[in-house]
Deep mutational scan, measured.
Amino acid sequence: EPIEAIAKFDYVGRSARELSFKKGASLLLYHRASEDWWEGRHNGIDGLVPHQYIVVQD
């Protein structure tokens, strides 16, 4: 079951695997890939989301 998150800041992906998004964007998170990253989805694209840039919705 994906988790919803909201972007705290704009983020520009630094590689093809990283998602880019704007502050306030809604993201879906699948699972924690590491301490710093989530596997997630934004605008229909799957990729990595940096933990420091999002607020996970409970």
Rank of each mutant, 00 (worst) to 15 (best):
residue 42 H to G: 11
residue 17 R to C: 07
residue 26 S to W: 09
residue 31 H to S: 07
residue 28 L to D: 14
residue 20 S to K: 04
residue 16 A to G: 13
residue 3 I to V: 12
residue 42 H to I: 13
residue 27 L to G: 00
residue 10 D to E: 10
residue 27 L to C: 06
residue 29 L to Q: 00
residue 34 S to K: 10
residue 17 R to E: 12
residue 33 A to H: 08
residue 58 D to P: 15
residue 23 K to E: 12
residue 43 N to W: 05
residue 30 Y to W: 11
residue 30 Y to R: 12
residue 50 P to G: 11
residue 34 S to R: 12
residue 16 A to W: 07
residue 53 Y to K: 14
residue 15 S to K: 07
residue 8 K to L: 08
residue 21 F to Q: 00
residue 5 A to G: 08
residue 30 Y to A: 06
residue 31 H to I: 03
residue 14 R to Y: 04
residue 11 Y to N: 07
residue 39 E to L: 08
residue 13 G to W: 02
residue 8 K to I: 05
residue 24 G to S: 08
residue 12 V to G: 10
residue 14 R to K: 06
residue 9 F to W: 08
residue 5 A to K: 02
residue 37 W to I: 07
residue 35 E to N: 12
residue 18 E to T: 10
residue 33 A to L: 14
residue 13 G to P: 09
residue 36 D to Y: 04
residue 1 E to K: 04
residue 34 S to N: 13
residue 45 I to F: 13
residue 6 I to M: 11
residue 44 G to N: 11
residue 26 S to N: 08
residue 40 G to L: 00
residue 49 V to R: 00
residue 19 L to M: 06
residue 21 F to K: 01
residue 12 V to D: 15
residue 21 F to I: 06
residue 58 D to A: 12
residue 45 I to L: 14
residue 43 N to S: 09
residue 12 V to P: 06
residue 39 E to M: 11
residue 8 K to Q: 12
residue 25 A to D: 12
residue 2 P to T: 15
residue 4 E to Y: 10
residue 46 D to P: 15
residue 26 S to R: 12
residue 20 S to D: 14
residue 45 I to W: 15
residue 40 G to K: 01
residue 44 G to L: 06
residue 50 P to C: 11
residue 11 Y to E: 00
residue 54 I to Q: 03
residue 26 S to G: 12
residue 19 L to I: 11
residue 20 S to Y: 03
residue 20 S to M: 03
residue 32 R to I: 09
residue 31 H to G: 11
residue 24 G to M: 05
residue 40 G to I: 00
residue 38 W to S: 02
residue 50 P to W: 03
residue 7 A to G: 07
residue 21 F to E: 02
residue 12 V to M: 07
residue 53 Y to A: 13
residue 32 R to S: 04
residue 9 F to P: 00
residue 10 D to Q: 07
residue 22 K to N: 10
residue 52 Q to V: 06
residue 2 P to Q: 11
residue 38 W to F: 02
residue 27 L to M: 12
residue 26 S to T: 11
residue 7 A to I: 03
residue 13 G to N: 14
residue 2 P to L: 15
residue 9 F to C: 02
residue 38 W to A: 00
residue 54 I to M: 14
residue 35 E to D: 15
residue 19 L to W: 01
residue 12 V to I: 06
residue 40 G to F: 00
residue 49 V to I: 09
residue 4 E to I: 06
residue 50 P to S: 09
residue 28 L to W: 08
residue 6 I to Q: 14
residue 18 E to A: 03
residue 46 D to E: 05
residue 2 P to V: 15
residue 23 K to R: 08
residue 4 E to F: 14
residue 30 Y to G: 06
residue 20 S to Q: 05
residue 20 S to L: 01
residue 48 L to S: 07
residue 23 K to F: 02
residue 45 I to N: 14
residue 13 G to F: 02
residue 20 S to H: 09
residue 37 W to V: 06
residue 34 S to E: 06
residue 54 I to A: 08
residue 14 R to E: 06
residue 46 D to S: 10
residue 47 G to L: 00
residue 11 Y to M: 03
residue 43 N to L: 15
residue 26 S to L: 13
residue 5 A to W: 01
residue 30 Y to I: 14
residue 49 V to S: 01
residue 1 E to A: 05
residue 35 E to I: 07
residue 28 L to S: 13
residue 43 N to C: 04
residue 5 A to E: 01
